[in-house]
């Protein structure tokens, strides 16, 4: 047993966790430590290793190297006690479309061995919380995308897991349903649950207590969203012009400009701190005949931070995108 087990606040910990698929390293020497009651967001581009990390933590895959402890148990060795304590929601919707909402929930309640009385109580409150009560008898195949995700969440919550693993739970879900979904998550965390969620949406990452950025299998940064944003040394300016393309091309060759990234309808320009100012940039663009342009300093978003971080990652650490080991991923 490791010293991890004595620290009962740590719910998830990994040490040098590595998983290879053939010659490709999907997750490389991952070190994580997540305390109880935290919403931890794992973000990164497609193929960064988010799903593989989750599968490793749930005991669905064996690590090539390193170790993972979940709820105090070594995942590779004590897989069954881990499975009793976690809820996992796969990225792909994985319930039975020909069964009703209720039947799916009964099935999972049976799998987790919940007593009948407890089950009915819990189902009632979950259905109420997710406002799914009216759809109890409906076949799952005929639910909307958002409702399916809520049902999948309910099925993973039936056994009151200590830790919840969610793999891109809100992809393909409308904004309203997404807000509902997060409201439910916050409520669960208030009740003491620990949540590890992967997401490709950076606005969702901002809702997490801490965020880890995974890039090509490497955890390149891990902190609270605020700390991450203040970590960025570069100054960031928002530029809006008429001919965005010409403006962008002009900016790219300006002295001191580190990078220019599109951000919605505007451009975000990164420059070394105290190197320049909005006024100077605006004047220079005017001189190039690209006016009218407005330039203003902005607080960088998480997206800016991540793009900057990925840019700084040494190229030699980068590998081709990893395949998903025979299982589909959309």
């Amino acid at each position: 047993m490791n010293d991890v087990n004595r620290d009962d606040r740590t719910m998830i910990q990994t040490q040098g966790l590595t998983r290879c698929f053939g010659a490709l390293t999907a997750v490389s020497a991952l070190n994580l430590k997540i305390p109880r009651g935290e919403i931890f967001g794992l973000v990164g581009p497609d193929g960064a290793g988010k799903t593989t990390t989750l599968r490793l933590l749930c005991g669905l895959l064996d690590p090539t190297e390193g170790q993972a402890w979940v709820a105090g148990y070594d995942v590779a060795r004590d897989t069954q006690p881990v499975k009793d304590r976690i809820g996992y929601m796969a990225q792909r919707f994985a319930l039975y479309g020909d069964l009703t909402v209720e039947e799916n929930m009964f099935f999972y309640a049976d799998l987790f061995g919940i007593s009948m009385a407890h089950r009915d109580l819990l189902m009632g409150s979950l259905l109420k919380m997710t406002r799914m009560e009216p759809f109890r008898k409906r076949q799952v195949g005929r639910l909307s995308g958002g409702m399916k995700q809520k049902l999948a969440l309910m099925c993973t919550l039936l056994h009151r897991p200590q830790i919840l693993f969610l793999d891109e739970p809100t992809s393909g879900v409308d904004p309203v349903s997404r807000r509902d979904f997060w409201a439910i998550l916050y409520q669960l965390v208030r009740d003491g649950m620990t949540v590890l969620v992967t997401t490709a949406y950076l606005d969702e990452a901002e809702r997490c207590n801490r965020v880890g950025l995974l890039h090509q299998g490497h955890l390149i940064s891990c902190d609270s969203p605020e700390a991450l944003k203040s970590q960025l040394e570069e100054a960031c300016f928002e530029v809006q012009g008429v001919n965005q393309r010409a403006v962008r091309e002009a900016l790219q060759v300006f002295e001191g400009v580190i990078s220019v990234e599109p951000s919605g309808a505007t451009l975000h320009v990164f420059m070394p701190p105290a190197h320049s100012s909005a006024e100077v940039l605006e004047k220079k663009l005017h001189e190039k005949g690209l006016g009218p342009v407005t330039v203003r300093p902005v607080i960088p978003s998480l997206e800016d931070v991540f793009i900057a971080l990925i840019r700084k990652t040494p190229r030699n650490a980068q590998e081709p995108p990893m395949p998903q080991g025979g299982t589909t991923r959309t």
Binding site: L60, Q80, K83, D84, G87, Y88, A94, L111, F112, G113
Partner: peptide
């Protein structure tokens, strides 16, 4: 094929 196996494997179901 349906991906339901992944969900089942994450439960205590042996």
């Amino acid at each position: 094929e349906m991906g339901t196996m992944e969900q089942l494997l994450s439960t205590p179901l042996r």
